[in-house]
Amino acid sequence: MKNVLGAAIFAALIATTASAEDVKPMEVAFVDGTVEVSLTGKAGDAAEGRKVFANRKQGNCLACHTNADLSEESFHGEVGPPMDGVAGRWSEAELRGIVTNSKMMFEGTIMPAFYKDTGYTRPLDDFAGKSILTAQQVEDVVAYLMTLKEE
């Protein structure tokens, strides 16, 4: 059923991206839904973040948000607000909070928490105890969102 080799490679990839200095998912400090400090202690890579945003197995943010900057991708969902100009509406700390765990900002939202690894009911075994994105990927996405300014 499972591709053991694929799983091993995947685990190795995770190991290279999740570093010991990262703030652990359950230790992220929220203040009114915002997260002030970088989860990795470094700035994210916006180009990588753009990929994570579109990738169906990673952020898959396009499932719910339209985004004119990714017009080459087909099928933008419309469950949440458009991402165009989002950097003008929210600060970096607010965006980090929203991506890390949007439920701290928007009570009862459908938007998943992307950096939270416990407290789930019946997660599939492959995902149990894991967050959807790594700290690095969250920072990359935040850096990317910061580039989405109104023309």
Binding site: S74, F75, H76, G77, V79, R122
Partner: peptide, 22 residues
């Protein structure tokens, strides 16, 4: 339920009529 932490209602009651990706 699940890692995406959603209920049936989140999609089929709160958001029917909208596009979720394709």
């Amino acid at each position: 339920v699940g890692q995406l932490d959603m209920s049936c209602s989140n999609c089929h009651e709160d958001n029917y009529g909208t596009m979720i990706r394709a």
